[in-house]
Simulated assay, not measured.
Amino acid sequence: MRKPFEVGDLCFGRHPVLDLLRADPKRCLKLYLSRSAEEPFRRRVIAMAKGGGIPVQYVEMSFLDRLAPLSVHQGVVARVAPVTLLDFWEFVEDIPPSPEPLLVVLLDHVKDPQNLGAIVRTAEACGAAGLLLPKRRAALPTGSVVKASAGAVFRVPIVSIVNVARAIGDLQELGFFSVGLDAAGERSLFAGSLPERLLLVIGEESGLSRLAKEHCDEIRKIPMRGKGESLNVSVAASIGMYEWFRARESTS
């Protein structure tokens, strides 16, 4: 069963949605547009969404009626983040220069909001400079994530990326060493210290995507005993972040 959206996660109606796209498009995570929307409005809202890199899903009016019951949605509903997502290059401009130690975390299509919230909370505790999220096929910082993170999403820079592989490559060019966590890794996470300027790439329990693996400088695994095949993604992320943090603390 599809979980209902929280009230604060939605913006609906033609004028409110257009105002959102004009004034604060980075908060717009996704648009649901009726297949029967009038052509002039349809062209306008699609053009604005494309300009902001916002995914659009075409749906029936009945879907919107269920999504935003008791509202006058006029054939369009936007899913909205309670925080403004940073543009990748905006984030990069504020990164302290080398050789200052820095941790950036990239989530490779982690879909569960509770896991995302827990990861953001740990990222704040470990002093991560930012958390990178793809806008498609991934959990995004909605109200449930705010709650799971204990408000950390308001304090850790959350960065929107279009392409995981491209983001890894761009950060490598900026001097980051990328380590992906995956059960198929040949080297243990604990076999040698992690680089001081680290891009930690984390996927779902099923592992990293093929492209993420191909673009990372190194793939490491978290050694395990017992019969479990994998750790919960938020647990694995926490172990990876704290391994980097532990080394920095021991030398400070």
Rank of each mutant, 00 (worst) to 15 (best):
M1I: 13
R2C: 04
P4Y: 05
P4F: 04
V7M: 09
G8F: 07
L10Y: 00
C11M: 10
G13C: 02
P16N: 04
V17R: 03
L21N: 08
L21I: 14
P25H: 14
P25M: 09
L29E: 11
L31T: 11
L33M: 10
R35E: 09
E39C: 02
P40D: 06
F41T: 07
V45L: 06
M48C: 09
M48K: 14
K50N: 12
K50I: 05
P55Q: 07
Y58Q: 09
F63C: 01
L64R: 05
A68Y: 00
A68C: 04
L70K: 14
L70M: 09
V72K: 13
H73I: 01
H73Q: 00
Q74E: 15
A78H: 03
A78Q: 04
R79P: 00
L85N: 08
L86N: 07
F88H: 13
F91V: 11
E93M: 08
P96I: 04
P97E: 11
P99F: 05
E100W: 11
P101K: 08
L102C: 15
V104P: 01
V105N: 06
V105S: 06
L107A: 01
H109N: 10
K111Y: 10
Q114M: 07
Q114S: 13
N115L: 05
R121Q: 13
E124W: 11
A125G: 11
A125E: 06
A125F: 04
A128N: 08
A129K: 15
L133T: 05
P134A: 08
K135H: 09
R136E: 13
R137F: 13
A139R: 02
L140W: 14
P141A: 05
T142F: 10
G143Y: 10
S144W: 09
K147E: 15
A148Y: 04
S149P: 05
G151T: 15
R155G: 06
R155T: 14
I158L: 15
V159R: 04
I161E: 04
V162Y: 08
N163C: 08
N163A: 05
V164N: 05
A165Q: 10
I168A: 01
F176M: 01
F177W: 09
F177M: 12
S178V: 02
G185N: 06
S188N: 14
E196R: 15
E196T: 10
R197T: 00
L198Y: 01
L199A: 03
V201M: 07
I202D: 03
E205S: 13
E205L: 09
G207Q: 05
L208F: 03
S209Y: 07
A212C: 06
H215Y: 11
C216G: 01
D217S: 15
D217P: 07
D217R: 08
E218N: 08
E218M: 10
I219Y: 06
I219C: 06
K221E: 11
P223Y: 05
M224L: 13
R225L: 13
G228C: 12
L231G: 07
L231C: 08
N232M: 09
N232I: 08
V233H: 02
V233D: 01
S234N: 11
A237T: 02
I239D: 03
M241E: 10
Y242E: 13
A247R: 15
A247L: 11
R248E: 15
E249Y: 09
S252V: 12
